[in-house]
Amino acid sequence: MSDFLQHVINGLSAGTIYALVALGYTMVYGVLKLINFAHGDVMMMGTYVGYASALQFKQRGGFGMASVLAIFFLSMAACAAVGWLIERFAYRPLREKPKLTALITAIGISFAVSYGFQMDWGFLPGPNPRAFPEVIRRQPWLTLLDGEVTLWNWQVISFAVALGLMAGLQYLVFRTRFGRAMRAVSHDHRTAALLGIHTDRVIAVTFMLGSALAAGAGILFAIKDVKIEPLMGTQQGLKAFVAAVIGGIGNVPGAVVGAVLLGLVEEFVVGYTASSWRDAVAFGFLILVLLLRPEGLFGRVTAEKV
């Protein structure tokens, strides 16, 4: 029982972080019908920006609330900028071209960034994993069942940050004018333009938002796993993408549900078999969903317009 509960807690912890990344994938797919393969690697960049900032703060005496916030903020701002750049210069020129072209470009960017960061050159970190500084001193926050089950303080913070960001996004998308425009563009960008909506701008902001959320996730991952390395973006990113597909790609709440589910399933499979199977879980889950319900849990079966 205690094992089970612990797995639930850990699974939710991972799942809520996956959700932040999955949202970026699903929003971009919604507006552009493109799988942004580079999304996970943008997250990785954010983690390293956070790492660099954390090192700076560490030198100057340590981590208070303000410095932790600053780490998040810097990282998210940097990633928003990178997201904007990628959309503007790699994807926008290809918008009217066949989808395959943009997909290849996306993979190219992902490859260039993830393996670029593996190079030992200049500011590039190189292949060796680093340890993310302990910005939050780990302490159990709540223990249950005579200490068998622990809810850690950093997990609580992780939940708070993830849920807070998701709530913010939810508000933006469903309760603001701009969010309305985002949803319109996501459905049909040509018709949205007919209403005067500047679709390029909406798409750019969507990218920036998704990237910022991914950066937040990257920091949370770093706090959770401590070990960071340049290929973490591709790994975690792909799993988050799988989560988005499971929930129904393009569907915002679906991405969250899919991610939490994936986090839980992954945790349980690894907990009860062996950690060497971890990487296969996400894809196995994906193939199952694609076989049984390809539009995902919340997706609509869309007939292709002729």
Binding site: T101, G108, Y115, G116, Q118
Partner: peptide, 20 residues
């Protein structure tokens, strides 16, 4: 070997933008 991978990635991007 280190440079090969990022170069491949960049090659793909450049190809798609300039000569798909």
């Amino acid at each position: 070997d280190q440079v090969r991978m990022p170069v491949y990635g960049l090659l793909l991007v450049v190809l798609m933008l300039a000569r798909p």
